[in-house]
Design a protein around this nucleic acid. Structure first.
Lengths: 272, 272
DNA sequence: TGAATAGTGTCTGTGAGACAATATTAT
DNA sequence: ATAATATTGTCTCACAGACACTATTCA
């Protein structure tokens, strides 16, 4: 068939001739939690944590998964992610970025569903407690060597463990392909989404100001350092750390007192 | 409806109750071209280049676009990208990575089509000349300030210019949102895909070995430096450059002679 | 007073930027 | 001989790692 104009072509266009697919947006919501200390001198330990939802429907009934849902036919994908964020965690206006698109034809047993994953960061103090009743924060701990990644998630009642194999891609690249080796409590390919998100965050914390999305307005440098340490999974030296973040923060005249030790100045984020 | 098992649920599942969408894979294929010098002493100038295809069908008939096509209902997205790579440029087994997923509901006038974009890199010497008849390599030049990006594409016969506005996203991040200001020769949202890819490549060239995917097996350090310079859009100092790439390359005993100047050793990539 | 954290000083080595100097080829 | 590129030497400065030291609070 020949057309004389774009308009004419569009009028005659029959979109039903192709097989179509469904799309979901899945969100990795990361935050940092305090574990209240029982020693008046000690600071609260920080934990890196992720929000998971227990499925009460098939498929993967009773397994945990990332907050997610179908993208509407006329909905911008990121808007779908934000809608889900509002629904599951009752939060809006937080940092969100697209992570990766997972499209394995077998990743969902129902039908072909492509998942666009997003990573969101939030300061837990800003959380209303109205997270959905099936949702729960899990503390993340991660062990990694050259070949495998072990992840342990814990929400105080339940522990989720899984193991991922890293496969170096054929072509020249630092990029890994991930493969699930062990997993029995997480739905879909979500173990891989979680690992991808953690890796992205670990990278970005070093060369961007992304971390301040997980901090309250005022914070001590000790707290900030603990957040870096818990995400990077390693101890940092105080003077080096302070040099690195020196031009990202602004000292205020507020102090944090009350611990059985020298009080600390409160700082806030200084945008460039 | 209540189900007693996943199997039972899946048997009863009716996927037609949701409105579905179509998906395409679009590929940014980057390479580096030589502009043959007419001075026997001078080295060939290098150009950073991208492969575009002229559309001979609606929509956007006669405009240029990235090689792309629909993702099959049972096809892995990356496999679709590779299939298109084979079809349009007759190449396979080259570096490819997922770039970003563009899903604006209005990005295609026909219907809702989500595009997963990929970036591929190739050494032009490996190119068979059997690229599809509508395809053409365009030399890229780019000018950037804090607010805008100007891109100029040239294939020797035709020039494509477009302008992109950078919008700093609301939340703490170094990520920009891009918006097309001027464009009349490129189809869809492809100006934004091109800019996103260039930015990704510029970043990755600094902290990965990705550049060697655009190099032949043997190359001189001068050539390698020129590729860096043409991608980064700035001159580098020789000694500094050599220090940086020293442990990524291996000196061979081959030499490159023939220029009216001191001959150069040929190097090859050394994997870590 | 002492446990615990806050904050600073400084030595050292690494590595990038800058510029200069030397080497080698084809015409 | 000369234009052009190839390659190395070296000075300086910025900065990260490492460790030591001082400051301050509250039970």
């Amino acid at each position: 068939m020949e057309f004389n104009s774009e308009e004419e072509f569009l009028k005659a266009y029959d979109s039903s001739k192709f097989e179509k697919l469904s799309m979901t947006a899945d969100i990795l919501i990361f935050s940092v939690s305090d574990e209240v200390s029982n020693n008046y001198r000690k600071l609260n330990k920080k934990h890196f944590s992720v929000l998971l939802v227990k499925r009460d429907n098939y498929p993967f009934k009773d397994k945990w998964c990332l907050p997610g849902g179908f993208v509407g036919i006329d909905e911008e994908i990121e808007d779908a992610a934000k809608r889900i964020l509002k629904k599951e965690a009752n939060i809006k206006d937080i940092y969100i970025e697209q992570l990766y698109t997972f499209g394995n034809p077998k990743r969902d047993p129902r039908m072909r569903i492509v998942s666009v994953s997003y990573m969101a960061l939030i300061d837990k103090n800003k959380l209303s407690d109205k997270i959905s009743k099936n949702a729960s924060w899990f503390n993340v701990s991660m062990l990694e060597d050259e070949k495998e990644i072990f992840i342990n998630l814990d929400n105080g009642e339940e522990t989720i463990k899984f193991k991922i194999k890293k496969i170096l891609k054929e072509k020249t690249t630092d990029r890994y392909k991930y493969e699930i080796i062990e997993n029995d409590k997480l739905a879909f390919d979500h173990p891989i989404v979680i690992v991808s998100g953690i890796e992205r965050l670990k990278n970005k914390i070093e060369y961007t100001d992304i971390v301040f999305n997980m901090m309250p307005e005022y914070f001590t440098l000790g707290e900030l350092q603990m957040v870096y340490e818990v995400i990077l999974g390693k101890k940092l030296l105080d003077p080096a750390f302070r040099r690195i973040i020196a031009n990202k923060v602004e000292k205020t005249d507020k102090m944090q007192t009350g611990g059985g030790h020298r009080p600390s100045y409160l700082f806030k984020y200084r945008k460039k």
